[in-house]
């Protein structure tokens, strides 16, 4: 099959159903052209002779093809203030609820996992400094974790290029970064010291447990890649890592309801998030 061919409507539906069941991603007919191009790219890349051959290869989970296909559909690039509606929800709703049971000076713990090269945990820090009026009233501990120690080293170094900063205004860049040259900026030392980084595999309880419990966890666009068993274990680990009443934010294509019944769905004006219940449910 070459990249000039098309897939049929039934083939599209067959693949869309599979992807929904496997990942929760929803592709309707309106996205058909977008999806079709990427499927054909993967068919060509895997040297499959037909859609049927590719679909069998995809279902066999050979060579992480599901992961490759998801990557073809998703924006893998990480940058500051990505999905900032969740950051707005954090400052306007989630923290407001979390501090009702806290006193000024208490600790608020926020976990970004996986944090990749640090854009998300630093974004949380900057967002709170800029948008949360009570930021000075509490001790805020931000932890960024990832399975990959190389990205953690880069995160701690805090050096970013233009594309990573594309959503930040010049004023914010001026306030929180210093330029190294025309193409690179480094997070200010004080801000770098405000985020602690640690290596964690989300499906290893012995690695997640030592991180302690958090008020809010950002766990975006990673569960989508896990198989059923790994997702169950990760969801239970995340539950353990949340304080009762604590919140978890997933990527916009993800739904915890599909993964685990442990959490409550919370709908806010800016985002849907999930909460560890305050009281145990029978």
């Amino acid at each position: 099959m070459d990249d000039t061919q098309q897939i049929t409507e039934d083939e599209f539906k067959r693949l869309a159903d599979f992807l929904y069941r496997r990942t929760g991603m929803v592709f309707t007919e309106t996205k058909r052209y977008y999806v079709e191009r990427r499927i054909i790219e993967r068919i060509v890349a895997t040297s499959s002779r037909s859609f049927a051959g590719y679909f069998a290869y995809l279902r066999s989970e050979t060579r992480n093809e599901v992961e490759h296909l998801i990557n073809a559909f998703t924006v893998n690039e990480t940058y500051f203030y990505r999905e900032d509606h969740q950051l707005a929800c954090l400052s306007s709703d989630l923290l407001k609820e979390r501090v009702t049971a806290k006193r000024p000076g208490d600790t608020i713990r926020i976990w970004s996992v996986p944090c990749s090269t640090g854009e998300e945990p630093y974004s949380i820090a900057i967002w709170l400094l800029e948008n949360w009026k009570d930021v000075d009233a509490y001790d805020i501990e931000i932890v960024g974790s990832d399975i990959d120690t190389r990205v953690l080293e880069a995160a701690a170094e805090g050096i970013f290029g233009k594309r990573a900063l594309m959503r930040l205004s010049p004023e914010l860049i001026e306030r929180y970064f210093h330029g190294l040259d025309d193409e690179r900026w480094q997070i200010l030392e004080d801000l770098r010291q405000s985020v602690r980084f640690s290596r964690v595999n989300l499906i290893e309880t012995k690695e997640t447990r030592p991180q302690g419990r958090f008020d809010v966890i950002f766990c975006r666009n990673v569960l989508i890649y896990f198989d059923d068993e790994s997702r169950r274990i990760a969801a239970e680990n995340l539950y353990d890592n949340l304080l009762p009443g604590g919140f978890i934010c997933l990527g916009h294509t993800e739904s915890m309801s599909r993964i685990s019944p442990l959490f409550e769905v919370c709908r806010y004006s800016g985002a849907i998030v999930y909460r560890r219940p305050q009281e145990l449910r029978a």
Binding site: T107, R109, A125, L128, L129, V135, D136, D139, I140, E141, I142, V143, L188, D190, L191, Q193, S194, V195, R196, S198, R209, P210, Q211, G212, R213, D240
Partner: peptide, 16 residues
Amino acid sequence: MPLIRKPASPPETPAP
């Protein structure tokens, strides 16, 4: 810059 790094909080639920 009011955010300051906190020392790692100890796990609140020690393993049994």
